[in-house]
Each structure stands twice: as structure tokens, then as C-alpha cells.
Design a binder for these strands. Structure first.
Length: 571
RNA sequence: CGGGGCAUGGCGCAGUCUGGUAGCGCAUCUGCUUUGGGAGCAGAGGGUCGCAGGUUCGAAUCCUGCUGCCCCGACCA
């Protein structure tokens, strides 16, 4: 491709709308252009990378035996009413009407359509298992689109759905998909982890996420250094109860005036105790309209996913407002404590393991010290409701956890019969009886992968593409070609030879100064750069540099083409 | 949806408080010079100042309403 006829417009200044580095670089390098909030056009350059991601995904899905289909983006509302999600999905589901006032949706996902397809196509257990997938545009009317294509409203997703005669077959199909996913992300050159995950709104039983590791990731994941490589989303990673039994009380209960000290940090400083010696009390809305109290160690955070699964707690989790807190305890947030509390109370295991702790006194400007469960108040039920923290033991018993940030690029679920039962997607089993098919579903955010790859692979100069995702493999940079026929001829010759060899070359034939060309080549992140200049030609040399390398290499003209081809093939 | 902010050539911004003929940098186009790390000089084009209404002799600027976008919190590939 000749740059002079390729519409790549790079930008020096960071667009003000872009917050994260991948979004900034995608705009600066001209990969995407915004049309509306969370809705983007992919430029010719950006589309090249997007297609590479798609191709790898498609190849690995095909290799795993999945069958590609293409389902409509616009779907009739009846299907969603049948599954019950017309009501449940909420405002994220974009609804519209056709000219006959018939309700439709723009598909945020395709469980309904695929299940409808499957129940029409599949009649016998003999046809199972089967796995259908598509690579297609979805629309989710996100409350807050963010970070460019990382969290767009319209995005491209690979979604796959497998149908099985029984749970054992589902397990095998799930394992095959897991393996295919590992191959895909490995091929893309991304550093990722497979983590256990909450099933969320999709439902079902087992579920794992594929997280690309990046410090800017929205998800926190707990990774064990144990031999079993346990990894889980912090949302669901279990925190084990402390192994040591609770110490015996050593202090007397005392009332301490703590005027104006509301936060854990303020109280800990005032009492000269570490936050881990404090118990904080959080009130959440109960499922019966009242409130439920949860006691946590001062240095721990409440885990919403765990909390909303507790009996009596409203799901989704909602924190109690100041009014209901006052109504339940008679005091404002900041001085709440478990002693003398009248509402339902849970305590996190770690809080329950404390002796002689400090907590709020349920009176304005009052805290208690030397508090002990069982002596000063009845010990409540111990539960796991906190986020794991670095240093916690792995739930498998092997090793310790550290916390890393990740970007969720894939998610696989064992759905079971949730949709097939709701929509009567049955096949006849060996005895001729209709049974609901057992399902799995497997998603990959194609557009998000592009952003995640940049988030993980960039430097001060711009994008540093992993070779399999780069829009071009080689950028060919003649310097001052306008003045030098030698440079021009040599560059043209190399361009023709590389193209003939099947290499994707971006030929920077613009009449621009060297600094501009170098800066643009680095911003675009093309792995291999070959410079043709008078200076080198005089010495019979070409200059090569890999995007990740710190310095140039000087190559003899003779054999330079072969050397470059070898480097390109090596990635 | 709640809270905060912004809206002025393609991009980044000043001008708004204190009303008086719309400006700067980058980008684009032309010419000359320059050519190993985002060049210099000279010139050119491009903006109903988000939309609608109002106040005023006069509105980018003041008032009212609307729309769009961005950022912070509960959701997800």
C-alpha cells in the first residue's frame, strides 16, 4: 500500500474526549472515528487489524468444529417475550417498532434467536452435539459508553452456542471452546489469564472469563502463585476464613468519644489502631424492604456479588440510604456498630475472627474499643462477603493471591437448560421422549480485543502491535526520495519484491521529512521498519529496526530482502 | 439514572466575567527554501460561535428552554 494514496491521518495532539491510552492512540493513529456516543467508524487502517482478529477467531472456531452462521441484528420482540428477557433486560435493550407498530429489538446478544433456530433445525439427539457461531454486530444501550471501542454501544462480537444431549457432552464442548480460546489469544500475542467468573445476567452454572492483563483494566482478578495457577475474578474469588481461632478477650469494653471521626481512616488514626483492628458496619437493603447489616474488618471491602447472594439481602445489591440507616439504627453513617443492633446482621469471617476490636457505638461521636464477639454481643453468622486482598491464601489451599487488572475479552458459560426449557427447544432422546437440549455459550469481544491489545502493547511513541494483529507487517521508509533517484528506485524495487512475496507493506512514499515519517511509523506500531536513504546506499547498506527494539540494525544490501522476509515470518 | 463539566473552522484552545465588525496553534492548499527524528518564510481557503426563543441600537458574550458530548458512581464482550 502506498501511503500517499492511503487515507491515514495521524494526529499529534491527544483528542480531548479520549481518556485511556488505547482510545487516544486509536484516534491519533486514525484507526477509528466517532460517529456518536459509543458508536465508531473503522477506517481502512483500523479495519485491517479488526479483520486480523476476526480471522484468527474464525480459524480457531472452525478448527474446533464450530459451524458459522449469521443471524439478524434486528429481532422480533416475541422471542424476547418468550424467554422472559423482554421484561428483565432493562433499558440496555434497544427497542423499536416497524411501520406496522410491531415491536423489535436490536440484538444485544443472540440466545433467543439461536435457540429458536436450534429448535426448528434439531430434532434428534443424533444431531448433537453441535456448535453454531457468528461474528456479528451487537447493540447494547450502555448507560455510559466509555473508553472508545472498549465499551462501545455498537460493537462486534463472536458469539457461539453449543447444544448437547446431556451434561457430560456439554462439559466436553465447553472444554473444547476453552482450548480454542486459549489458542486464539495465544496466537494474537496477548498476555491473558483464564479466570473463574460470576455468571451474571446470562445465567447458568460454570463460567470463565478470558482477561487480557493491563493495568488500566476495569476488572480486578485474583491470581495465585500456587502450582495450580488458580485465577478468579475478584467478584467471586472466595476468601477463606482465617485458620487461627479467635483469641480470647484481653481488654474490657470501653466507650470512647470520637467527635467528628467518621471514616475508618479517621477513627484508626484517632484511636491509634490499625484499620485491621476495626470493624465497620455496612447497611444494605433487604429483600423484604428493611435493611441488613454486614460487619467487615476495617481494611476490607464489601463484595457486592457475594453480598447479594446472602439470604434476606436484595439482589441486585443496593446500599441503604442515609434515611433508612437512621431509621434502623438511630444514628448517622460513621458511628455504626454491631453492638446492640436490632436488624439482621452478618459478619465476614475476618471480622468475626477479631478479638478486642473497635467499632462504632451507634451514638453520635461514639466508638467502642475492646469489643469481643460472644462477650459483648452475640456472635452473628460468619459469611464470606469481602473482596480478597493481596496475600490472602488461595482458595485451593495452594499459594497466595495477588491482585491484577484485566480487560475481559472473552467469556464462556455452561448454560444448561435455562433457555431451552423456556423456549421448548427439545430433541427426542433414545427412548423417543422430548428432552430440552443442554446449552453452552461462548462470547468474544472482537472490537474490544483491538483496544485491549493496544492497552497492553504501547509505549510513549505509540502502538506496538503484536505481529499477528499489525495492520501491516512492514513499513518501508525512503528518505528524501524526491531528490534521489537512487533512493527512489531502490525503494520501489523493495516494495515490488516484498509485495510479490506476499508481505503486507506500507510504503511511505510521501514527500515528508524524516522526522514525520519516523514518528508516524512508530505511532502506527508496524513491527518491521526498513529505511532506504542515500547515506546507507553509499555504504551498500539498509537500516532495519523492529518496533520493540531500542536501536537500528545495519544490513548489507545484498540479502536484505531475504533477511527481512525471514524476520517477518518469524513474527 | 443521579452528580459535575463542556459545546467557538477538520483537531486542540483563547475570547464570555465587564455586550461593540471572531482570534491563536496544529492540520489543509499554493510558491520558494529545507530533507536522519513531528522544518522555515511568504501567501490562501475554511467558522450561521450546538439549536430555538428572549433582552438590547447591537449578543459567541446576558436570560430561558432544548439538544449533543465528556467526566465520576450501580452494568457487561
Amino acid at each position: 500500500m502506498r501511503w500517499s494514496h492511503y487515507p491515514v491521518t495521524t494526529v499529534k495532539e491527544v483528542p480531548s474526549e479520549a481518556e485511556v491510552v488505547s482510545h487516544q492512540l486509536m484516534l491519533r493513529a486514525g484507526l477509528i472515528r466517532r460517529l456518536a456516543a459509543g458508536i465508531y467508524t473503522w477506517t481502512p487502517l483500523g479495519l485491517r487489524t479488526l479483520r486480523k482478529v476476526e480471522t484468527i477467531v474464525r480459524e480457531e472456531m472452525d478448527r474446533a468444529g464450530a459451524l458459522e452462521v449469521l443471524m439478524p441484528a434486528v429481532q422480533p420482540a416475541e422471542l424476547w417475550q418468550e424467554s422472559g428477557r423482554w421484561e428483565k433486560y432493562g433499558p440496555e435493550l434497544l427497542r423499536l417498532s416497524d411501520r406496522h407498530e410491531r415491536p423489535f429489538v436490536i440484538g444485544p446478544t443472540h440466545e433467543e434467536v439461536i435457540t429458536d433456530f436450534a429448535r426448528r433445525e434439531l430434532k434428534s439427539y443424533r444431531q448433537l452435539p453441535v456448535n453454531f457461531y457468528q461474528i456479528q454486530t451487537k447493540f447494547r444501550d450502555e448507560i455510559r459508553p466509555r473508553f472508545g471501542v472498549m465499551r462501545g454501544r455498537e460493537f462486534i462480537m463472536k458469539d457461539a452456542y453449543s447444544f448437547h444431549a446431556d451434561a457430560a457432552s456439554l462439559e466436553r464442548g465447553y472444554a473444547a471452546m476453552r482450548e480454542a480460546y486459549v489458542r486464539m489469544f495465544t496466537r494474537m500475542g496477548l498476555e491473558f489469564r483464564v479466570v473463574r467468573a460470576d455468571t451474571g445476567a446470562i445465567g447458568g452454572s460454570a463460567s470463565e472469563e478470558f482477561q487480557v492483563l493491563a493495568d488500566s483494566g476495569e476488572d480486578a482478578i485474583a491470581v495465585s502463585d500456587g502450582a495450580d495457577q488458580y485465577a478468579a475474578n475478584v467478584e467471586l474469588a472466595p476468601a477463606l476464613p482465617p485458620a487461627a481461632p479467635r483469641p480470647a478477650p484481653a481488654q474490657a469494653l470501653a466507650r470512647v468519644a470520637t467527635p467528628g471521626r467518621r471514616t475508618i481512616a479517621e477513627v484508626a488514626t484517632f484511636l491509634q489502631l490499625p484499620p485491621a483492628r476495626l470493624v465497620k458496619l455496612l447497611l444494605v437493603e433487604g429483600s423484604d424492604g428493611g435493611v441488613v447489616a454486614i460487619a467487615l474488618r476495617g481494611d476490607h471491602e464489601l463484595n457486592a456479588v457475594k453480598a447479594q447472594k446472602l439470604p434476606g439481602v436484595a439482589s441486585p445489591l443496593r446500599m441503604a440510604g442515609p434515611d433508612s440507616i437512621r431509621a434502623a439504627t438511630g444514628v448517622a453513617p460513621g458511628f455504626l456498630g454491631p453492638v446492640g443492633l436490632r436488624c439482621a446482621l452478618y459478619a465476614d469471617h475476618a471480622a468475626l475472627a477479631l478479638a478486642d476490636f473497635a467499632c462504632g457505638g451507634n451514638e453520635e461521636d461514639l466508638h467502642l474499643t475492646g469489643v469481643n464477639w460472644g462477650r459483648d454481643l452475640p456472635a452473628p453468622q460468619g459469611v464470606d462477603v469481602r473482596n480478597v486482598v493481596p496475600g490472602d491464601p488461595s482458595p485451593t489451599g495452594e499459594g497466595r493471591l495477588s491482585i491484577r487488572r484485566g480487560i475481559e475479552v472473552g467469556h464462556i458459560f455452561q448454560l444448561g437448560t435455562k433457555y431451552s426449557e423456556a423456549m421448548q427447544a427439545t430433541v427426542l432422546d433414545e427412548s423417543g421422549k422430548p428432552v430440552p437440549m443442554t446449552m453452552g455459550c461462548y462470547g468474544i469481544g472482537i472490537t474490544r480485543i483491538v483496544a485491549a491489545a493496544i492497552e497492553q502493547n504501547h509505549d510513549a511513541a505509540g502502538i506496538v502491535w503484536p505481529a499477528p494483529l499489525a495492520p501491516f507487517q512492514v513499513v518501508l521508509v525512503p528518505l528524501n526520495a524526491a531528490k534521489s533517484a537512487r533512493v527512489r528506485d531502490k525503494a520501489e524495487e523493495l516494495y515490488a519484491a516484498l509485495t510479490a512475496a506476499g508481505v503486507e507493506v506500507l510504503f511511505d512514499d510521501r514527500d515528508a521529512r524524516p522526522g514525520v515519517k519516523f514518528a508516524d511509523a512508530e505511532l502506527l506500531g508496524i513491527p518491521h521498519r526498513l529505511v532506504v536513504a542515500e547515506r546507507g546506499l553509499d555504504a551498500g547498506r539498509l537500516e532495519y529496526r523492529h518496533r520493540r527494539a531500542a536501536a537500528n540494525e545495519d544490513w548489507p544490501l545484498d540479502g536484505a530482502l531475504e533477511t527481512l522476509l525471514a524476520r517477518v515470518r518469524a513474527g
